[in-house]
Structure formats: structure tokens, C-alpha cells
Amino acid sequence: MGGPEVERLIALLAKLPGLGPRSARRAALKLLQHPEARMLPLSVALTDAARAVRPCSLCGNLDSSDPCGICLDSHRDITLICVVEGVGDLWAIERAGAHRGLYHVLGGTLSPLGGVGPEDLSVTPLLRRVGEGEVREVILALGATVDGAATAHWLADRLASFGIIVSRVAQGVPIGGALEVLDDGTLTTALRARRPG
């Protein structure tokens, strides 16, 4: 097709989430058609990010500063920590502008079948942060999966001794969602998590 360099580019692009072999070929073609305008700036941005971006030592977010910009933001509510599975979840909540407190990235969820135990997650730093005494509430913003629910339950048990509020994000019917198209699990969760109207 285009030589080993092109094939390597396509193979690397195909490893990115959401890009299969066909999408990777299209992306590579776009990049190669205008290398000075598209490929070279991308190459520089990738190199700069690879050299500068690291996990925040406090919360686990990815940033070029440590502590990260969120942890350093003096306008944040330091008494409120939102626990998420991964950095992508943190970025999604930030994009929505729905949380003005701090975060803690677990780095996954408990998964006995997948071989992920408490020692594989960033639990000890979370407990240390809560134990310092400034935190009044921890929001468990974990996915509505079996592993996410198990992790949230396990964490709630560990946090109970600190005398703080431990809450979970609400789950159920999305805004604009029609009840007839929702799966049984979502409907059940929505009904059980109902609140006064």
C-alpha cells in the first residue's frame, strides 16, 4: 500500500480507542496528505505530552504540573472528593462542570475474575486524604457495572469509620430517555433510587 512506515502508522493508530483498521487507514491518509499542516504539529504535540504529562501525586489526574491544576485550584471545595475509576471519568465530569470539589482516581475497579484486588487500586492514598480530617463527603462516581457497584460498596465500608458522608452518583433514567427503550436493570435502579418529586 504505502510502505512499512505507512503500515506502522496505521497499526499504531488502530490501537487507539474507537479506531479500527479502516478508521486508522482514513486517519493516516488525512495526516499523510498534508504532513506539514497535520502530521508534524501532531508529532510535536505527542512528543511534548509524552515528556511533560504525569499522574498527579495527590489525585491521579494526568497533567503537566504536580499537583495538577484541579488540586491547585483555590476555588475548589477541598471538603468534597469525587472518586472515579479512571482519568477519562474525571475529565467527563469536569467537561460537564458538575463538580467543584476535588477528585481521586482509583485506577480501576475491583474485579475478582479479572484479578484486580484492593492492592491494585489507589485506595490507601484516598484513605490517607480522608484521614487528614478536612474531607466531609466522598462521592463514589463509579460505573453502574457489577464491578463498579462492588467497588463502591467495598469503599463505603472502608470509609464508614471516618464519620463522613459517603454518597453515590444517582443512576437510572437519562434526561430525554424514553422508558420503553431502557433495559430492565436501568429501570430497576431508577425506581429503587427514586427521590421525592
Rank of each mutant, 00 (worst) to 15 (best):
M1S: 14
G2S: 14
G3R: 08
P4T: 12
V6W: 05
R8K: 15
R8E: 15
L9R: 07
A11K: 11
G18D: 11
G20D: 13
P21F: 04
R22W: 06
A24S: 11
A28S: 06
K30L: 11
Q33V: 00
Q33M: 03
E36Q: 12
A37W: 00
R38D: 00
M39L: 13
P41E: 04
L46A: 01
D48Q: 05
A50E: 02
R54Q: 14
L62D: 05
S65M: 09
S65R: 13
D66Q: 07
I70W: 10
I70E: 15
H75E: 15
H75V: 11
R76G: 13
R76T: 13
I78K: 15
I78M: 09
T79W: 06
C82W: 10
V87G: 11
W91H: 14
I93D: 12
A98S: 13
H99R: 08
R100G: 10
H104M: 08
L113C: 03
G114R: 10
G115S: 03
G117Y: 00
P118M: 06
E119A: 07
V123N: 02
T124R: 09
T124M: 05
L127D: 09
G131H: 11
E134H: 15
E137N: 15
V138K: 11
L142V: 14
L142M: 13
G143N: 15
A144L: 07
V146L: 15
V146I: 15
W154L: 02
W154V: 02
L155G: 09
A156P: 04
A156N: 05
A160P: 06
V166N: 02
R168Q: 14
G172Q: 04
V173A: 00
P174C: 03
G176N: 01
G177D: 03
A178M: 04
A178F: 01
A178R: 06
E180W: 04
V181A: 03
V181E: 08
D183A: 06
D183W: 01
G185D: 07
G185P: 04
T186V: 04
T186R: 06
T189K: 06
A190M: 00
A190I: 02
G197S: 07
G197H: 05
